[in-house]
Nucleic acid binder design. Structure first.
Length: 430
RNA sequence: GGGGAGAUACUCAAGCGGCCAACGAGGACGGACUGUAACUCCGUUGACUACGUCUUCGCAGGUUCGAAUCCUGCUCUCCCCA
């Protein structure tokens, strides 16, 4: 049993901890759980800390349990929310649970032969059979409304600052979560619940329930909210959330998100989102400080997290894609790509179709940029861009008199147009 | 109800009869620099069959050789007094 709490501490992953937790975990192998909300069919990187905590827990020799809130997802957690939550219907929920399960399986070892294997549970499985009468008599009886009202998540919503009231459904939420903890305590000897710092109130309702109902002792650990130094929200880009599922956020974009971290954030993130040892990280940091322009931290961070999330192959493709988009690649590099990789790299790039005959006759640049494709908003705009030396065909700068011909086709059907460094357009020849 | 000010490009904001496709600032985009960053510097920012032509300054008319600019009506916004 290695020191799990110390591991979290130096990585900056410890926010709150119940007294005696550290000693208990050092001396006893136990099970601990974290809940995941199935609010979408994939988790995003906001949940990554929680996943890492579970993995650290497993690495320390304990049994991690990932709980999917199939039942609680139907109720809605009021923590950190200023308005009543939308409830999900059963079909959506089922789809979401499957997606979340897939995310978790990439990180945690659910292998049945390991003696501290990870386990996945869905609280719907035990919640669905409890009748209202049972719940009110056996669980509600142990917790006073006074106790529940004292929680921050509840107080905030009851205060005059909140413009919306809180429904009984949401008020009950903490009891549901508390019951989960009690259930796992009873059934799986689970003595620890972990979660984001906003979960402290819900977690302690659980330990309270265990104390009153089972005369037991249970522990709690919360992790801090991950923030960025510039104050913008972690895990958000212009395009929305950064998801763990490759259908929603391609491995390439995922890698790019981490790679673009600021120096300060990278130092923070590499502790939180990789399993590299303390020595390795410290030497990386000092190396980075000597040669910041090499961005060693960001590159290592990007590699580690992307490999963990999407696998080695996906990372290598993302790296290849990155060097093509940002490195000094040439037309022949582009032409060496197979069609699938090429399409992955330029996924989401605006496309337009031109007919084969146009290319065979030779397509002039005005036609390729505006007249036939509407990439730029007018022919004049196209002329300006050409005059500014801003246009490239297949990564090579071209002048106004350039004619696109058969020789410029990639995979026999694509031409890559580029305005400036970052704006790409894909010409599909049919 | 009475009086006054105003409406200009993505935004703010000049222009008040020809030199206006319209000063300037911000934004956006591009170029150089750079770490796929920040800063800085430079350029572009109505359209077209392009050293010329066409359409734009709230809307609709009018005066004039010529209107963003003057006149009339309309729509909207703001301010002051009741």
């Amino acid at each position: 049993m290695t020191n799990f709490v110390e591991e979290l501490r130096w990585r900056g992953l410890l926010h709150d901890i119940m007294p005696d937790t550290e000693n208990y975990l050092l001396e006893n192998k136990t099970a601990g759980y974290i809940g995941f909300d199935p609010t979408a069919d994939s988790l995003h990187i906001g949940s990554l800390v929680q996943i890492f905590i579970l993995k650290h827990f497993q690495n320390a020799g304990h049994n991690p349990i990932a709980l999917i809130g199939g039942a609680t997802g139907m109720v809605g957690d009021p923590s950190g929310k200023s308005a009543e939550r939308n409830l999900l219907d059963e079909a959506t929920l089922e789809k979401n649970i499957a997606g979340v399960r897939e995310n978790l399986e990439r990180f945690l070892d659910f292998d049945a032969t390991a003696n501290n294997k990870a386990e996945l549970v869905n609280n719907y499985d035990w919640m669905k059979d409890i009748s209202l009468i049972d719940f009110v008599r056996d669980t509600g009886k142990h917790i006073t409304v006074n106790y529940m009202m004292a929680k921050d998540s509840v107080k905030k919503r009851l205060s005059s600052e909140s413009s919306v009231g809180m429904s009984f459904t949401e008020f009950t939420y903490q009891l549901f979560q508390g019951y989960d903890f009690y259930h796992l305590y009873k059934e799986k000897n689970c003595k620890l619940q972990m979660g984001g710092s906003d979960q402290w109130g819900n977690i302690t309702t659980g330990t309270e329930l265990i104390r009153r109902k089972a005369q037991g002792k249970a522990y709690a650990i919360t992790v801090p909210l991950v923030t960025k130094a510039d104050g913008t929200k972690f895990g958000k880009t212009e395009g929305g959330n950064v998801w763990l599922n490759s259908d929603r956020t391609s491995p390439y974009k995922y890698y790019q998100y981490w790679l673009n971290s600021s120096d300060e954030d990278a130092e923070n993130f590499i502790k939180k989102f990789t399993f590299l040892s303390r020595e390795t990280i410290e030497s990386l940091i000092s190396e980075h400080k000597e040669n910041p322009h090499l961005r060693l931290l960001q590159k290592t961070l990007g590699e580690e997290v992307t490999v963990l999330t999407h696998g080695k192959e996906a990372f290598e493709n993302a790296l290849k894609a990155s060097s093509i988009l940002f490195g000094k690649s040439t037309a022949s590099d582009l032409k060496s790509l197979d069609e699938q990789t090429f399409l992955d790299v330029f996924d989401g790039v605006p496309q337009a179709t031109v007919c084969k005959a146009d290319i065979e006759e030779g397509l002039d640049m005005i036609g390729a940029l505006a007249a036939k494709t509407n990439f730029l908003k007018s022919n004049g705009d196209a002329r300006r861009a050409l005059k500014e030396n801003a246009i490239s065909v297949n990564k090579e700068k071209v002048k106004e008199d350039f004619i696109i011909s058969n020789d410029d086709l990639i995979a026999n059907k694509y031409v890559l147009l580029q305005r400036g460094k970052k704006t790409y357009y894909l010409l599909v020849v049919e």
